[in-house]
Write a protein that binds this DNA or RNA. Structure first.
Lengths: 212, 212
DNA sequence: ACTTCATGTAGAATTATTTCTATAAAAAAA
DNA sequence: TTTTTTTATAGAAATAATTCTACATGAAGT
């Protein structure tokens, strides 16, 4: 980050109030900035294609498209642009996924002002921002060699059972469909939950929505 | 709204970036204001109990409690305080419920700056803010007495229980959270399923994804 | 070849959930 | 104002799911 150089930011969030807040924060932190606003997937790509952007601050909750593809497309246009994901969603679940897909930082919307300033500064100075929590998780997954996609841990039969569970079938129904005892279904369910480190159906549904 | 009088606002939102944005907006719109911030259910009530507040701008997505009860409790402390709900959740589903429970306005987080300013001005001048859409829906549902959205068939308590169910909590956990017996939770669950004509959690999750 | 680990399978004991029934209170309709 | 309906609540009985344990089989590692 050189002094007296103009930096340009693109704030992509479907809530204008959030964009204004972020905008204010950037202006407090840096001099001579150029700030673009985008309230949708389409706008984000349009602005990114027409302007040089140093940092894209991206919410991953757009109604009109999924952010993994925004990232890929935007990166293709501007390989040097850094991306900071700024999301209300649980970083434990989403951060690694987005970092893998090309983001250089993940900032939680629940963060306080200091953390946000730290994140913005860090993005401009070092080009990245990752919380200790996420660093730990990356290390863990490297050491334990567990796949980034947790569903890969499941055996075929486990996936079969899991798919029926997320369709809303009960243990007994599944047992009948697969011609096994309901206690066996229970065992599979338990092993699925253990492997994914969850303990209820809602989380299993989340997992499948996320990773498949 | 008299000139030169100091008005006090309480912004209750778990995202500090949103509070900052709203704060900025208020300062642009009014002179001589006093602004309080609250990041949680507890803080909101504490501040509302210790300070005279003219307008509470309330997000309805707190991790530590449900906003219907915040409203009731806060209103009990300060009957003259106006409440503007400021939420990312679909107004079609939630607005009527909150207006019924004592809010005087419902502003969507996706609104643009003009709408937000309009809402804030309207709250201070006329004491209320309701979009044309909501007015129409009030009329429609008054005339036909049939809810457009199936989730509107659910009572407040039923929605409360449903939201906990789709987060993955079990009957007993929910019972403890709401201080009722687990059998009561069962009854609510049954009624929810009956009303929505479903019979499992996965479908309930679908319903909420679809209609909210 | 031997051991270890993952997989597919179940039974028994324990817990949790559902179903059915009931009731007081509030709201709406007559 | 009385009657009916909806809402919020719970207990008991019936049913379903979970937990814990176990074991045979095949694959992978040493």
């Amino acid at each position: 980050m050189k002094p007296n150089q103009q930096y340009s930011f693109l704030i992509a969030d479907d809530h204008s109030i959030v964009r204004q807040g972020v905008s204010l924060l950037i202006k407090e932190l840096f001099f001579n900035v150029k700030i673009f606003h985008a309230g949708s997937f389409k706008e984000t790509l349009k602005i990114a294609s027409e302007n040089k952007i140093d940092l894209l601050i991206l919410d991953i909750n757009f109604p009109d498209g999924n952010s993994l593809s925004i990232m890929t497309e935007a990166k293709a246009m501007q390989p040097d642009m850094k991306i900071l994901i700024f999301s209300a969603l649980d970083e434990d679940i989403y951060a690694l996924r987005y970092l893998n897909a090309g983001a250089s930082g993940y900032l939680n919307k629940g963060s306080n002002e200091d953390e946000m300033k730290q994140a913005l500064k860090s993005m401009m100075v070092t080009g990245k921002y990752i919380t200790q929590n996420i660093k730990d998780r990356i290390l863990d997954s490297y050491i334990s060699k567990k796949p980034i996609n947790p569903l890969e841990q499941l055996s075929n039969r486990e996936v079969e059972v899991a798919r029926l569970l997320i369709k809303g079938f009960g243990n007994l129904e599944i047992a009948e469909m697969l011609n096994i005892k309901k206690s066996t279904v229970s065992t599979f369910k338990n092993r699925i939950f253990e492997k994914l480190e969850i303990d209820n159906l809602a989380d299993l549904i989340d997992f499948f929505n996320l990773y498949s």
